[in-house]
Write a protein that binds this DNA or RNA. Sequence first.
DNA 1: ATAGGGTTAG
Length: 676
Amino acid sequence: MHRRSQFILRRHLSHLHFHSGEPASHTFPRSIPPPCSTAISFRVCDSIPPMATFGLADYDDLLRGCTRRRAIKEGRVIHAHMIKSHFVTSVRLANRLLVMYVKGGSLEDARQVLDGMSQRDVISWTAMMSGYSQHGRSFEALEQLPRMLRTGATVHRRRLGSADVDSVAYLRGNGQLRHLESSGCLGSPEAPQMVNIRSILPNEYTLATVLPSCTGHSGQDHGRQIHSLAVKSNFDSHMFVGSSLLDMYSKVGEVKDARRVFNMLPHRDVVSCTAIISGYAQSGLDEEALKVFQQLQREGMECNYVTFVSLLTAIAGLAALDFGRQVHGLVIRSELLFYVVLDNSLIDMYSKCGSLKHSRRVFDNMPERSVISWNTMLMGYGKHGLGREVVQLFKSMFREVKPNGVTFLAVLSGCSHGGLIDEGLDIFGYMVSDQRLKPEIGHYGCLVDLLGRAGRIEEALDVIKNMPYEPTSALWNSLLGACRLHAKISIGEVVARKLLDMEPDNASNYVILSNIYAASGRWQDVARVRESMKLKKLTKEPGRSSIQLDKVMHIFFSSDRSHPRRKEIFDKITEVCERIKAAGYVPDLSCVLHDVDDEQKESILLGHSEKLAIAFGLMGNACRESIRITKNLRICIDCHNFAKYVSNVYQMEISLRDSSRFHLVAGGACSCGDYW
DNA sequence: ATAGGGTTAG
């Protein structure tokens, strides 16, 4: 390279530091900058003399530097210079450019490079797919795979000498090829020959890259096709491909297939184990997730923060506080603290296990918080019915982060659960007018819930009618719950019929409708609904909630029959329960426990399984507020979470596997005002 | 020059 031109180019790029002094690791994962404009800047390099010549190695060096530092602007200057000086490039160098744009997040530029290449190899395609995949552009990522496989058609090729196809200009689209041809750069100008180039096959990199894009409706279809490609090319037991495969299967809901792939792996590493843990956790098979982790521990495998994040999700699902605390201890000992994502998971785990104190402690000790940290904390308060804390925390988050859509979901549902009707309405207005966020259907759902709980059914109905979305069945269900709670029989009937129209095969809709008829004494209508249920063969589901308080009691005591004060406690609980029922409220075991004095409560909790204790401990926090709300506003507490714990308990104690039924019964019963 | 697992909400 000429000294002078080297000097000139370096001076243009003088603000870049191409020495290797990069900090090795970052405490927080660094995000990729947003895509840049697609225009390749010719203007910037106008002052670089076009006669300046650089060698392949020089460009290679410069582009590598740009890629590493995500210096896309400077990369563009180099790219433009390559074009201007008619540099004959190679596939290798074109790939450098492509990767530079991909890593810099400028996918449109990368695509331009790819499409302009007259010759591409598996790396070119993989790099492009990686770009699309990492930016959530799954469709485009997958789209490249058949394009790549089709490339092996017959092509014109001139004799190129030793440099072979690598020397073909990739810049055909920019008119470079003609120039190269006329200047004789492409070897002796003999007649072009037709050459068959073999189809470019995916390698292990390609497969591992595209598999995460197999999501959504056709995800499983695509995933299985790619799996078969992997089998054909013998990459299906490759560690990277395998963990992508098993992750793909668990994400499309085929955990069994995920496990099959996991078992086929030649060995296990942290990533594949984490993938299966996360798969189990996401499918609700929390105990399976824990088992894998325990096995991992026994094998002495080193965990990283992603493993813990996945594990904490499973622990949160089980409400296993003690185990969660142990894992928190492990996290501290692994010196993995101060990963925002990990701390967020800890906050969530503690709040779902009922220990808001611990949640808050983690939250307060974070050196840096993301919007998810705030949202998780807000959710925690909301689920426990602590509306005031929700609003207070919401007000203080602005100095640190900007709230997003999920924030408002958390705050609105927090207000709803906490009985803060006017505050909730204010915040919805604030969201729309001040924050200029377009409410999603979920936000309208919160609004409906908020108004419904307060008995403002007509207003809730207005919201549904005027919102710019088609109401979902969940939304109608929420309104229906409110109708039952406030004895709005006529609106309730309309809503229930609507639900039945939307989901004619959902047994619980028949149950709801017949309950409404029963509530207004229309027994003939009840019989008609039951009859149509029978015709549809939907009668297997219980007609009413089959979980009775006394059954819970039975299980509650069966695990500790020898407790000295068993009888006394039982009597006390029964008495309180009767009192609540007599007052016209729905008894909830957690409310009952609240009224038992501390010593008795402790003796109950101590003698029983961890899950049960935690479940009640959690609702003990929540019910303080809910009893107040129930009494002041005559609205029912939200039992969604509690239903989850009850189902856990039941599964454990009487080994009933059908948890969805318990969710349905326990959750449905609460919103319908039935006794469980 | 290309590669795998992660957090809130419903």
